[in-house]
Design a protein around this nucleic acid. Structure first.
Length: 172
DNA sequence: CCCTGATTCGC
DNA sequence: GCGAATCAGG
């Protein structure tokens, strides 16, 4: 695989967006992370802030928490439990609640992790194997986020995998 | 052991 | 110029 202008442009773009060398290698395909790093140096692109270590500063930022929906009502409910004579009153906190918002939608608004979009050959025992995109098209990739031991999926896709399809559609 | 980028040096 | 091997670190 050679460094065509097109591939170099994609490298520059992804590097500037803060993707790691291995992530870029996975997206380009056909090159190792070492190849990517080597090319970055030859192009004299600006390096990462710290030598070694995760590029925390340049990482893609997590989306901000969603604004409260109009029908969001913060409230703390209490209820009094029947008690024998002499006992103290018991209150239970129910915490914040949404009005008539399906739970799946709330979940969707809060946590939808970015996939690393790895190629099949990049997957390991510890990467999420959730497929993204059309298997017959070029943009087909696997999630690739870290998955817990003994699970083929990351925590998010693990949860997604066990939802009924209608719920799944709402979560995405 | 998982990962990160940096560097070296034979090709 | 390329990138595997290696180093140094989180």
């Amino acid at each position: 695989m050679n460094w065509t202008d097109e591939r170099v442009e994609k490298l520059k773009k992804l590097w500037s967006e803060g993707l790691s060398a291995s992530q870029i290698a996975a997206q380009l395909g056909g090159v190792s992370r070492n190849a990517v790093i080597g090319k970055v140096h030859r192009l004299a692109l600006p390096g990462r802030a710290k030598a070694g270590g995760a590029p925390t500063a340049a990482r893609p930022k997590r989306p901000a928490a969603p604004a409260r929906p109009a029908n969001f009502t913060p409230r703390v409910a209490t209820r009094t439990v029947a008690r024998p004579a002499g006992a103290t009153v018991v209150k239970e906190e129910v915490a914040f609640e949404y009005d008539e918002v399906p739970v799946s939608r709330v979940i969707s608004n809060v946590v939808v992790p970015m996939s690393r979009n790895l190629e099949l050959t990049q997957l390991t025992e510890r990467t999420c194997k959730w497929p993204n995109g059309d298997p017959l098209k070029d943009d087909f990739h696997f999630c690739g986020n870290e998955s817990p031991d003994n699970s083929p999926y990351c925590t998010y896709h693990q949860r997604l995998a066990y939802q009924p399809s209608a719920e799944r559609r709402r979560m995405r």
